[in-house]
Amino acid sequence: MWQDWAGKAQQGDKDAYSLLLRDIVPYIRNFIRPRVANEDWIDDITQDVLISVHKSLHTYSPDRAFKPWLSAIISFRKTDFLRRHYNARDHKQASTDDPAFLREHVTEPGAAGEWKDIEKALAQLPEKQRQVFTLMRIEGYSAQEVADKMDMSVSAVKVSVHRTTNKLKDILE
């Protein structure tokens, strides 16, 4: 059916095109859902995919299956979206004071206060150790990036993070 609608859409049939786009939305969403961490992103990526389908409609051949063509676009746009997102590193900030955010993104919003305990525990650590831990475990930098930033070896960074984790466990228990 998608094949047929896409073929008609290529000839300018707006009704078939509208039917096609509406029909593929659930497929796009189901494709993306298990592959992204945030439910909000699904709509953003779905919109990107629909625009991409529109832009690349001329590359589809109606004598071939539609799903592989669509899946390639979804996969490409999903990766593109995640790359843009993580490059911007806007995933590193989250406020534990925002109840709406907690409801949506934290499994146990009631336990969010624990973050403040972690902050207190972190404050007790030596400056360098705290910095290394924050960069790697909270801000999401890789061991190599932290090593470059802090002028340390990668193994020293890993050891430091491991020790800090154990120390935090001791403090928080």
Binding site: A9, Q10, G12, D15, S18, D43, Q47, I51
Partner: peptide
């Protein structure tokens, strides 16, 4: 989000013209 997608689909459908495959 669904509303946005519906609007987008309407816009894209309206914008459709025959393509050279």
């Amino acid at each position: 989000g669904e509303k946005d997608i519906d609007t987008l689909i309407d816009d894209l459908s309206a914008d459709l013209s025959p393509v050279k495959r």
